[in-house]
Amino acid sequence: MILYIMCFFLFLVGVYGAITKRDLIKIILAIGIMGYSVNLFLVLLAYRTGALVPILKKGLNIPASMMVDPIPQALVLTSIVIELGITALMAALAIRIYQKYGTFDITKIRRLQG
């Protein structure tokens, strides 16, 4: 249980960072932290103390209750790839913004009203 609470706390750290930080790079990192916490949460769901790999093989009879759940692990792989894409895109945008505005500070990047 304590692991889940700490995982949720990590999620909140990410939300806090994304909302309060003024630096584009720090915002990107905060979104990354949110993503990590959700990935951690998915892996925690699959974890089972003392369980083995979920592979069916002749001569190796592991009961289903003694296997870790493979689905969340597959989900985490996919979601890591998606987050990589998002981070790369946002970093590219941040670089272009820096070239145009000469700053990473979001309080100075306000050419749009509202």
Binding site: L24, L93, I97, R111
Partner: peptide, 8 residues
């Protein structure tokens, strides 16, 4: 610049 800002 506006477009990049909006996209970010």
């Amino acid at each position: 610049s506006e477009e990049l800002e909006a996209a970010f």
